[in-house]
Every structure is written in structure tokens, then in C-alpha cells.
């Protein structure tokens, strides 16, 4: 029985690796599958009629057009987005993923395609201050497995209770329901996804911009499997190309009235 099992296992491994080899050989990249989140407005969201829209989505499409490849967008929940890349469910992640040291151990990144700081949001009139004293006993909502989750857990873990959500949208819901005192997330995402919406009108930013590279990385890049250097090169060139030919600016101006690329 044990022998049979190991024989099947070895066979499965052999088939698996030979498939991998076939894919590795056929690296012309006619078709690229891109993992996106679809629950992170205004960067990535699903409209009522099921269409994907947002800054990340437009950037993904522009890059594919630039690289002259066919792209297929695959939506994937955030906390499984890296494992699914490693499991070859798609070839690249374009989902506002910050380039951090921890993630670099598992995946490779292109150069950044935007960089915006993180900020806290509080309810207007709540008077909460972002100091060790002011945060004591407060509840902070973050999206699970994000730089914001890591930052608040490591830096303020002793003062605050951290509530982790699968998507940023769920954190907004609980903020409106009065179950959490503060949100910590990307400032641009919260401006467009929460503060500018009807639900977010009673809330405001508080505290400084957070962008310490130790926690927040070097901006958002496109994540790839480690062996796909050629695809990374293609994407890097495509990012530069759309930066140069004005496509990037056109997409940016559609969503924001300021420069999201950062310095």
C-alpha cells in the first residue's frame, strides 16, 4: 500500500514537473493571466453588472496592450493572492501590492507603478489622536495580510486591538456600524473608496502619512513568480513605456487629481 502510494506520488510529481518544464519552455508569453482583487476601490472593484473596473485594472489592460499580449484577468481574494500565484492560477498580480522584503522572499516584483502613503481614518468629532496614549484601548480595522496589518500589529500591537478583515470593504462596513474606532489603510484607497462615498461623509483622516519603507515597502509593484524573469523585464519596459507615452497619466487623471506615482 505504502509502495503504491509513493509510486503514485512520484508519478504525480513527474507529471507536475514535466508540465512545469513545458510551460517554462514555451515562454513566448502570448497570453498572460493576471490576478486582481476586485474589492479595493478605486483601484479594483466589481461593478453591479459584474465588470472589473479601477486603476489597477486599467493599468493591467494598458500594460498588456503595450506588451502586445492577450490578458485574462482573474479575481482572487487578497489573503490567498500570493499562494494562488505560486500555484500557477495566474502569472502576475496587479493588485496594489506593496513591494516589501517579506513578500520578496516568495515572489519577485517589477518596479513600482504607484506609491501612496498610509493613513488612519477616524470618525469626525471622536477626537482620537494617533499617539501611544491616544490609541490605548482603541480598535483598529485593517485588511488581513496587508502592510497595514503588519505595521499596526508590530508597532501598536500592545496599545490597540487589531481587527482583520478579508477585504477593505468589510472594514468600511464595520467602521460605519461603529464597531471599530480607526481604520488604517492606503490614503488614496480610503479617499476614493470610503471618504468620498456617502457612507464615509462623517469620517476624516487623522495623524501623519506613514511610508516607512521598513513596513510599507517601496510602492506598489507587480508580483511574479521567481523564475519568470522575462515576463518581469517585459512588464518593466511596459511600465516605462506607458509612463512615457502619456497612457499612464490618462489613466491616473481618470481616477485622481494628483500624482500617484510618487517620487
Amino acid at each position: 500500500m505504502k509502495k503504491l502510494f509513493s509510486a503514485v506520488f512520484v508519478a504525480a510529481l513527474a507529471i507536475g514537473s514535466s508540465l512545469g518544464a513545458v510551460q517554462a519552455d514555451a515562454k513566448e508569453w502570448k497570453k498572460v493571466r493576471v490576478g486582481v482583487e476586485g474589492a479595493y476601490p478605486p483601484f479594483s472593484e466589481v461593478t453591479a453588472d459584474g465588470k472589473l473596473v479601477g486603476f489597477d485594472i486599467d493599468i493591467a489592460n494598458a500594460l498588456c496592450e503595450e506588451m502586445k499580449v492577450e490578458c485574462e484577468l482573474v479575481t482572487q481574494d487578497w489573503d490567498g493572492i500570493i499562494p494562488a500565484l505560486l500555484a500557477r492560477k495566474y502569472d502576475a498580480i496587479i493588485a496594489s501590492m506593496s513591494i516589501t522584503e517579506e513578500r520578496k522572499q516568495k515572489v519577485d516584483f517589477t518596479s513600482k507603478y504607484y506609491n501612496t502613503p498610509a493613513k488612519f481614518v477616524r470618525k469626525k468629532g471622536s477626537g482620537i489622536e494617533i499617539t501611544e496614549e491616544g490609541l490605548k484601548g482603541k480598535t483598529v480595522g485593517v485588511q488581513r495580510a496587508t502592510i497595514h496589518d503588519n505595521f499596526v500589529t508590530e508597532v501598536y500591537g500592545d496599545e490597540v486591538e487589531v481587527k482583520r478583515y478579508g477585504t477593505q470593504d468589510e472594514a468600511y462596513l464595520d467602521m460605519v456600524a461603529g464597531r471599530i474606532d480607526l481604520l488604517l489603510a492606503d490614503s488614496v484607497a480610503m479617499q476614493g473608496g470610503f471618504l468620498d462615498t456617502d457612507d464615509g461623509k462623517d469620517y476624516e483622516f487623522v495623524g501623519p502619512d506613514f511610508s516607512d519603507p521598513k513596513y510599507f515597502g517601496d510602492g506598489a509593484g507587480i508580483a511574479l513568480r521567481k523564475d519568470d524573469d522575462d515576463l518581469r523585464e517585459m512588464l518593466n519596459q511596459a511600465i516605462e513605456a506607458i509612463r512615457a507615452n502619456g497612457k499612464y497619466k490618462a489613466i491616473q487623471d481618470k481616477y485622481f487629481d494628483f500624482d500617484v506615482y510618487g517620487s
Binding site: E170, L173, D174, V176, A177, G178, R179
Partner: peptide
């Protein structure tokens, strides 16, 4: 999430 959106629940949970 459903009950949490009701105004009376928001006030009550304060």
C-alpha cells in the same frame, strides 16, 4: 453585517 447596518443597532452598540 446586515443587522450592523441598522441605525438602531449602530446607536445601541455605542
Amino acid at each position: 453585517y446586515g443587522l450592523g447596518q441598522m441605525q438602531f443597532m449602530i446607536e445601541l452598540s455605542q
